[in-house]
């Protein structure tokens, strides 16, 4: 276990319009780990993810991707983003392209793959998320869950070192959440390194190797699910977790079909 963490964040600070959203966060994500970040809304969880893939530039602090510091001024952001996959709450599928083209456009235009190679790989990724029959459909013709699965395939197609999920199921109708969570579970079983911001407590309890509880721009507590759910260091942690579990129905994990 002397491997370098895939992602390391050191003393991150970020303010918007004078208000500090991230007030000094340090964390690291090891290879094959599934880290789930939970916490009240507006506490900077999404901002943290966007700082990691440099969509937002932090005010202070450093971030490493493997052995490369990516927060230096001269970093080629575009190159770095090839190695970090991101799945958005609003899917953000490219509306003028069908499902397969959404997955292959990055391969062709960014990685320079030949179109027929990209198509083969694209179909393979769609197969991985269970969307291969819908390859020629446009985003408007897909349900929310299907859109998100294509979005996951799109991110996977770039062969990232780590996948970031920004509340991937928050914009979905309840019946559609399951299909996305099961794809994510599958990825976890395939040993993908993942950082997931979510309110899905079942997923956190069953799939996460480590849970990080963020509040007010700081990490309050972190540790394995067993610890946070059953033996938290802080009362606040217990309060938050069990309130959420009640809200989303206890044992929600039972409803998640295993693929």
């Amino acid at each position: 276990m002397s491997e370098l963490p895939i992602v390391r964040v050191e003393n991150l600070h970020k303010a918007f319009h004078g208000t500090e959203i991230i007030r000094g966060i340090s964390l690291s994500v090891n290879e094959n780990e599934v880290v789930v970040i939970i916490g009240p809304s507006g506490t900077g969880k999404s901002t943290l993810l966007r700082c990691i893939n440099l969509l937002t530039r932090a005010d202070q602090g450093r971030i490493w991707l493997r052995d490369q510091e990516i927060t230096t001024p001269h970093t080629d952001e575009d190159k770095i983003r090839r190695h970090i996959g991101m799945v958005f709450q609003d899917f953000n599928l490219f509306n003028h392209l069908n499902a397969l083209q959404n997955v292959t456009i990055g391969m062709i235009k960014v990685l320079g793959m030949k179109p027929h190679e990209a198509q083969e790989k694209g179909m393979w990724e769609l197969e991985r998320v269970g969307m291969v029959e819908k390859a020629s459909l446009y985003p408007a013709q897909l349900s929310g869950g299907q859109k998100q699965r294509v979005a996951i395939a799109r991110a996977l197609g770039m062969e990232p070192d780590v996948m970031l999920f920004d509340e991937p199921t928050s914009a979905l109708d309840p019946e559609l959440i399951g299909e996305v969570l099961s794809v994510m579970q599958k990825l976890a079983r395939e040993r993908m390194t993942m950082v997931v911001v979510t309110h899905e407590m079942g997923f956190a309890r069953e799939v996460a190797n480590r849970i990080i509880f963020m509040e007010n721009g700081l990490i309050l507590e972190e540790g394995p699910p067993r610890q946070l759910f059953y033996n938290p260091k802080f009362e606040r942690t217990r309060e938050f977790l069990w309130k959420l579990t009640e809200l989303y129905g206890k044992d929600k994990s039972d409803e998640v079909p295993l693929v």
């Binding site: 893939n53 969509l55 991101m86 953000n92 599928l93």
Partner: peptide, 15 residues
């Protein structure tokens, strides 16, 4: 969101 998604897969602003 479209711009974010495009940048997220490594496209440059111009791409």
């Amino acid at each position: 969101g479209q711009m974010s998604a495009a940048r997220a897969i490594g496209m440059s602003r111009w791409q």
